[in-house]
Design a protein around this nucleic acid. Structure first.
Lengths: 163, 163
DNA sequence: TCGGTCTGGTTGAACTCTCAACCGAACATA
DNA sequence: TATGTTCGGTTGAGAGTTCAACCAGACCGA
């Protein structure tokens, strides 16, 4: 228990600056989208994922994967988007358990209206403030973190399997 | 309106990888803390900020700044932490409007119990997966993003002032 | 074909966050 | 002293997320 590898002063600085940057950045994007498009970023990303899929349709489980969302969260979110008329759900032909979400025309219009403001915000606060070298580095860093999480999850699963 | 500077394919890759990494990473930390310490990361950070302050006490407004939290959110959070007995609120002597939050001994104990697991998770998923060069770069990137947000907010404020 | 298990998805309750409205104290100005 | 404004903080309502429980359809071995 006492063999915890605490963070050094330098590591703490990195960690806090990172937290601060990410927190403020996503807060900013979320607020912008809520103000200009009336929806949080998580919902915007659902519409984006659907708009890029063939037939503008995806199984709920596929959609959850694309949006890094839990099944439950997605279910609630799509319920709300459906009430707005931006998405509709249909039964899945090949698997009677499944349901397929489809982006409606009004939904597509809302997305098209929201996109410019969102992209502009992302560009201003991310791409415009970083050098090309920093962007390349950010790409590497992101991938390394993803990999770390993936292997960690795999390890956890393996451990559970061992019991 | 049509002069939006859309993201190139390469930029989209960076943006999506970054989003994915950050989302999964923070989700992971939040879940770990919720499971092992019974509180979300936002609440943990409140306890940390208080534990580092003289007398383990801070004005609510100071605390909000340290935690990058809105006044409202902090107020709700401290109310809950107070109900748990981990924090208590006192009237501020110098300013009768103010209130001061103080970390209690039970609160400190909870924090001390939660810290090892949290630090371990941060180290495993951040510091252990990045090279020293990447960490240095992440520091720069974070600072650049913070600066970008700061100047942006300043600009917005200036614009509002102009009207 | 029957039972057990797994999978895809939904639901409700509890919790957290956001936003706007609000209150009292401080401050500035006249 | 009166009045308007700003500041610190709280509150309630509405929206979004999480967790656990649940259901029906698919899958699998006996």
């Amino acid at each position: 228990m006492s063999d915890v590898r605490w963070l050094s002063a330098e590591e703490q600085r990195v960690w806090r600056d990172f937290r601060t940057a990410v927190t403020k950045f996503t807060e900013n994007l979320d607020r912008q989208l809520q103000r200009d498009a009336g929806m949080p970023m998580a919902y915007y990303e659902i519409l984006v994922a659907l708009s890029e899929a063939p037939e503008r349709s995806l199984r709920m489980s596929e959609l959850a994967l694309n949006c890094h969302s839990s099944r439950s969260r997605l279910s609630h979110a799509v319920a709300k988007l459906e009430k707005e008329g931006w998405v509709e759900r249909q039964a899945c032909a090949s698997d009677r358990r499944g349901s397929v979400a489809r982006l409606t025309d009004p939904g597509f219009a809302v997305l098209a209206a929201a996109a410019p403001g969102h992209v502009t915000a992302v560009r201003e606060h991310l791409f415009d403030v970083l050098t090309p070298a920093q962007l390349a580095s950010l790409q590497d860093i992101s991938r390394a973190m993803e990999n770390g999480l993936r292997t960690e999850c795999a390890q956890a699963r393996a451990e559970i399997g061992e019991f």
